[in-house]
Write a protein that binds this DNA or RNA. Structure first.
Lengths: 154, 154
DNA sequence: CAATAAAAATCAGTGCACCGACGAAACGGT
DNA sequence: ACCGTTTCGTCGGTGCACTGATTTTTATTG
């Protein structure tokens, strides 16, 4: 009888929120392009010619994951990857014409999806929600390396 | 130059929030038991003897995923699974002694982790945050089957 | 009571997300 | 010019999450 009420646990709610968004994306935006894939396209619209690692940093994905996502986008012909002539370790990324078109087409739909997603909240609440979630996420992300003496006992 | 500011997109923020929580869980709670696994243990502390599908419903996981999670918990000896004598399709789930101990041990740590996670917000903000995130998640989950004419064009 | 429908679980396939280890390229200082 | 270090990308392994198809068992209906 020592069970906990998970609906008061932000982590559990975060997971459910993310899943709900995943489903809504599939029905309202695209079944072929995922939300992380769109984030990569978007980062390259803003800054063409970025290298792989930096794109991952911009959208919040580690090196392994970004490599997979980029691999899929290249296979679908939305992205090109060329070795940096200045630095042979890097790959420079660039959208294809199809990639640009896809990004433009999906941008409209993401805006509509966001409206539906936030519809249960009033206008002021929506702004508060965005602000709170961003502050928590930012703080937790900054909580990674710094000597942090938060390690679990066992 | 038609790039979007993803820090205003709740879906993108939800993903980052979930990732941040995942990392914090690993450092502050356990590297062996994951948050969804703990949720399953917790559901079975509250209601011992549930079947697999119902546990999935309680914690918000579909049939495929809950099967995998339960498989891991059984392999680690935290859970037992027996056929329902009344209904041969079902498997009834029950915690082992080790499962009960693990749940108790982790409960304390999750509470501490939640404090750290929500620390960037003031006390009232924390309550608002929980309320908003729950309302959005609940609404989006209820948005699944009902004929919903939200389907994407292409 | 047999044919059919519904429900529980599994399986195959795709995709995101992490870690740790590895190889190749570049940089730094001596 | 050289050796050690850092950095970029890859690879292997684990785990969550979904869909759609299949299997087994139960329930329903003609």
């Amino acid at each position: 009888m020592a069970a906990v009420d998970l609906t008061t646990h932000p982590g559990h709610l975060a997971r459910r929120l993310q899943q709900a968004h995943y489903l809504l994306w599939n029905t309202m935006v695209s079944e072929e392009i995922t939300s992380p894939q769109f984030a990569v396209l978007n980062a390259l619209v803003a800054e063409p010619g970025l290298d792989q690692r930096t794109v991952g940093e911009r959208v919040g994905l580690d090196r392994s994951t970004i490599a997979e996502v980029i691999g899929r986008l290249i296979r679908r012909g939305l992205l090109d990857k060329v070795r940096d002539p200045q630095d042979g370790r890097r790959f420079l990324l660039r959208l294809t014409d199809d990639g640009v078109r896809t990004h433009r087409r999906l941008t409209v739909r993401t805006a509509r999806m966001n409206q539906v997603f936030l519809a249960p909240l009033g206008p002021e609440e929506q702004a508060v929600f965005i602000d709170l979630i961003r502050r928590v996420a930012d703080a937790a992300e900054g909580l990674r390396d710094p000597a942090s003496s938060l390690a679990a006992p066992h």
